[in-house]
Design a protein around this nucleic acid. Structure first.
Length: 270
DNA sequence: CGCACCCCCTGCCGGC
DNA sequence: TGCCGGCAGGGGGTGC
């Protein structure tokens, strides 16, 4: 569910509550996430202090003592929610963390597509294998042109490949391609440089705008305090099949490839 | 190696 | 009302 803007919003919302806190107790109620949590997971986290919270792509990095990183990926339905006090476990609360402040952090994830790993930076890198940050300086037109030229995949598939650029998912891929005026099904290598340039620019614009609106809440996304985002009200194409394009009133089209939907305006996008 | 397909899991929604 | 199929923001493994 959560893409870069949602993960960044969660990071910002948790930061004031968690940085400087020591983990006093960890309860694993369901270890069967995308990768089973090892038996030593709780012991490894207990007693450590959270020095900072960083984000890389759709992953959160809780920086701990001794160069260790607690890596968290929210999958489709994962939530990290801070509670002022211990509360009774809710359905799908798989991991619960008590903090020195007396507050508690719940990891709730109905579909269990999320991931947690504790390890060094090198170990985390081997797990995540991410490309450039879309909002960073290295994500440039030249980089995306070069990447697009050595693949037969569609531009949307390339943008959603986390090894190419880290953090774009199904919603923002459709939204940024609308703004760039490029159809999601175009083969990446056939795009003109000017089109790639618009795509790179709109990737940054749309992600920044979505962060400003605290992400998109379709059904279950919430930030660390349980608050909804607002960017879903600004979607131009995502989940708007048959609805009029906000620019030209043409009906928005939906296409499915590999089980995932793409949305676009057949008039505004070539 | 690149890519298409299928799977993982639960919940919800629409149609019959 | 109830059941069933399809779909959902994620990623990974397999086999061609």
């Amino acid at each position: 569910m959560p893409e870069l803007p949602e993960v960044e919003t969660v990071r910002r919302s948790l930061e004031p509550f968690l940085v400087g806190q020591t983990i006093t107790q960890v309860e694993v109620r369901e270890p069967r996430l995308r990768r089973p949590l090892p038996s030593e997971f709780a012991g490894t986290l207990t007693g450590r202090t959270i020095r900072a919270i960083d984000r890389r792509g759709k992953y959160l990095h809780f920086q701990l003592d001794d160069q260790q990183i607690w890596l968290v990926h929210l999958g489709m339905t994962g939530q990290l929610i801070i509670e002022a006090h211990a509360v009774l476990p809710l359905a799908h609360d798989h991991v619960r963390v008590a903090l020195s402040s007396g507050q508690h952090l719940r990891y709730n994830d109905p579909r269990r597509f999320g991931l947690m790993v504790v390890g060094t930076a090198a170990e985390i890198e081997a797990v995540t294998k991410l490309g450039h940050e879309p909002l960073g300086k290295k994500f440039t037109t030249s980089y995306l042109v070069a990447t697009a030229q050595r693949t037969q995949r569609t531009i949307k598939d390339v943008l959603m490949d986390q090894r190419v650029v880290a953090g774009v998912g199904n919603i923002y891929a459709s939204e940024l391609l609308f703004r760039a005026g490029v159809r999601p099904g175009r083969v990446a290598g056939t795009l003109a440089r000017a089109e790639i340039e618009r795509i790179v620019k709109m990737t940054k614009t749309v992600l920044q705008e979505a962060i400003r609106h605290r992400g998109s809440s379709i059904s279950d996304y919430r930030d660390g305090e349980g608050k909804e985002g607002g960017f879903q009200q600004r979607f131009r194409v995502y989940d708007r099949e048959e609805e009029p394009c906000r620019t030209c009133r043409t009906a928005i089209c939906r296409e499915t490839r590999g089980g995932r939907s793409s949305f676009f305006c057949p008039t505004c996008q070539q």
